[in-house]
Design a binder for these strands. Sequence first.
DNA 1: GACCTTCTTGCGTGACACGCATATTTGCGC
DNA 2: GCGCAAATATGCGTGTCACGCAAGAAGGTC
Lengths: 206, 206
Amino acid sequence: MTGLRERKKAETRAALGWAAIHLTAERGYDNVRVEDIAEAAGVSPRTFNNYFSSKAEAIASRHLDRSLRTAAALRERPADEPLWVALAQAALDQFTRGPEVEAMPSPDHARWVAGVRTMLAEPALQGERLRATALAEAELAAAVAERTGTDLATDMYPRLVAAAASAAVVVAMQHYLDSADPPAPIERLITDAFTQVAAGLPAPPR
Amino acid sequence: MTGLRERKKAETRAALGWAAIHLTAERGYDNVRVEDIAEAAGVSPRTFNNYFSSKAEAIASRHLDRSLRTAAALRERPADEPLWVALAQAALDQFTRGPEVEAMPSPDHARWVAGVRTMLAEPALQGERLRATALAEAELAAAVAERTGTDLATDMYPRLVAAAASAAVVVAMQHYLDSADPPAPIERLITDAFTQVAAGLPAPPR
DNA sequence: GACCTTCTTGCGTGACACGCATATTTGCGC
DNA sequence: GCGCAAATATGCGTGTCACGCAAGAAGGTC
């Protein structure tokens, strides 16, 4: 039941998050006032804080949404698929670039990437992104518990798995961003990271 | 070369961090003003922001210091010790309770624990703590790279190991805090978590 | 003991998060 | 259609907060 109410709410939220990211990537974190974001989203400044409790939270909101989808994706993998294969696939699903990214005009693409980089360097943002990651991790742990028939309350197992999977994605992303061009394809990095983790990260031969 | 200057600086920093934690655990996060913390540490409000760029950062500072010590501890483990044993030991080292904790009067011990719990629930704090964890993780990754002869720039391995080890500690801590009394001993939880991670977190038999 | 560096402090400013009261919009039963 | 109750948007006021700047105090060096 997707009432008009819910849809509008979701739209406003998305608009605010999107505007926050764009403005920040363009001008830098503290050259963007909440007022600007609200205006760009066509909403009053006061309303901004009905959706997000801080500027940082707004900017991290898309990261949160994306991260949360991994748990949902895991739940939809076939039940007989081996756990770590399912996890890797669920993670990979989140990295197929959507149409809104593909459609982005590439003239200022370099500027955009640079903007995102400095944005991610902002301390206030890092905390908020990590918080989002942690929240998604909890959700993922619940999904893992269901799938493996373990108990969140008594077993560390599901949380460990969720944390390890999350770490694999984060590290892969980090390598992707750090690597000079041409960057290694993100899919390969993620797959590789999951393989290593599932193997217990044995010390490499010297 | 421990000049008076450095010592005083370290003392002020510690006093501020300590005061921030105590006051917050007692009164709750937003019943503590920066002014109060500064006063408790015997320093002007303005000086507070010379040491920390936010109230949250001050509260998380001890967590940061502690987390950073894990990397240092790893560097001091014998070089011929297997990696995962060394990691587990380095982590365990950080959980031997110091004298200042042991000396704490236990009458209001329950109040203290409750205070800490609500403190950790504060969103603004969570982000800052996670940021500290991430920073320590980077340090740990460097130490792992040294020890294993891998390259931070080209191999995901050291970062994956650091992230997995960090996750093991975090999950163990989480279980420790969530578990009803009598809590399982933290040492066992940590050891257990590391064992599982090093085994590749295989799916449990149903 | 003079000099330079580093740290502390007070003041002022712009921004922010949020409580509260009011106006507006939406959904729903009739 | 119609009107009412709930949800949402907005405007205003307030208490903090982070930090730039400049002057003063203390530490370290020769």
